[in-house]
């Protein structure tokens, strides 16, 4: 299984005076078992890109092949695309609408035409994957839950469709720090359990460094670069030119370097940075 994007371009308002190229010849692939992240400044084309991946927008040019099927072809049914690629929008809790949590999560599977038993199984499993118990919250109104819980219910609604590719557009935006951590842990857990492809859009470079196998950097509609977090975050100047930051731990190590400490600067996560700093400090104190 893989998702392959080839020479994807999208033009807004083609032929009009305000014609704008939102995506410009974007190509990349993500393979089974990978978590990929998309980073980029506001207006860089991230959201336009993810809306193509589940067929919401049709490209002006290019193809998107998911597990062997070209989902940009005219004859492909939307239902088939939705089953392959699930998209969780920004602030998905605004889209909850059913009277109970269980009914909301069941909405997608129902539309797939599954039988009652299968739907119930999927609702239970999807809720448990996002850390909620169907017996506890299933019959409650989704609007009585906390912000973080609402978001997890909305994500469960997509997971219940069992997509091979799960896309999340800024899944932690606006959450408090505790709920933020829960969503990040949840993404990791869902990925391990479902063995799917996860693609998430984020402004949080700490999350990007901690979760991703592959980072895609968008700038003005183009894929500026792609690679492992190590490869991407070492190109600090190119990132800065695209208005992007590096993870907070990497920033600390850079600041130490600038202040004259010869610490290694390849750590991206706090765990790694602490390990390297401890080794550096222990080495120094032995010499004294």
């Amino acid at each position: 299984m893989s998702i392959q994007v080839r020479n994807l371009s999208y033009v807004y308002n083609a032929g009009m005076p305000d014609e704008q190229k939102a995506l410009d010849n974007v190509s990349f692939e993500v393979y089974n078992g990978q978590i990929a992240s998309i980073i980029g400044h506001t207006g860089s084309g991230k959201s336009t890109l993810v809306q193509h991946l589940n067929g919401l927008l049709k490209p002006s040019e290019g193809t998107i092949i998911v597990g062997g099927t070209d989902i940009t072809e005219a004859g492909v049914a939307m239902r088939e695309i939705r089953q392959k690629v699930g998209l969780v929008f920004q602030y998905p809790e605004y889209q909850l609408f059913e009277e109970t949590v269980a009914a909301d999560v069941a909405f997608g599977p129902k539309n797939l035409g599954l039988d009652e038993m299968e739907i119930n199984d999927r609702v239970r499993e999807a809720l448990s994957l996002v850390g909620l118990d169907v017996d506890e919250v299933g019959e409650r109104s989704p609007f009585d839950l906390s912000g973080g819980q609402k978001r997890r219910v909305a994500i469960a609604g997509i997971i219940a469709m069992r997509p091979q590719v799960l896309i999340l557009d800024e899944p932690t935006a606006g959450l408090d720090p505790g709920a933020h951590r829960e969503i990040i842990d949840m993404i990791r857990k869902v990925h391990e359990k479902e063995e799917n492809i996860v693609i998430f859009v984020s402004h949080n470079m700490d999350d990007v460094a901690a979760l991703s196998d592959k980072v895609l950097v968008m700038d003005r509609g183009q894929l500026m670069m792609s690679g492992t977090p190590q490869e991407i975050f070492h190109q600090r100047e190119r990132l800065a030119n695209a208005g992007l930051d590096i993870p907070s731990a990497a920033k600390l190590m850079m600041q130490l370097r600038k202040s004259g400490c010869e610490v290694p600067v390849d750590a991206l996560t706090r765990e790694d940075a602490a390990k390297e700093l401890a080794a550096y400090l222990q080495g120094k104190s032995r010499k004294c």
């Binding site: 408090d176 720090p177 505790g178 706090r270 765990e271 940075a273 602490a274 700093l277 401890a278 222990q282």
Partner: peptide, 19 residues
């Protein structure tokens, strides 16, 4: 369940290494 600033978190981690 709030965060601590980076420096506080790093200081905590370094203490666990005995610094």
């Amino acid at each position: 369940r709030l965060d601590v600033p980076l420096a506080v978190d790093m200081a905590h981690r370094l203490r666990e290494y005995g610094i």
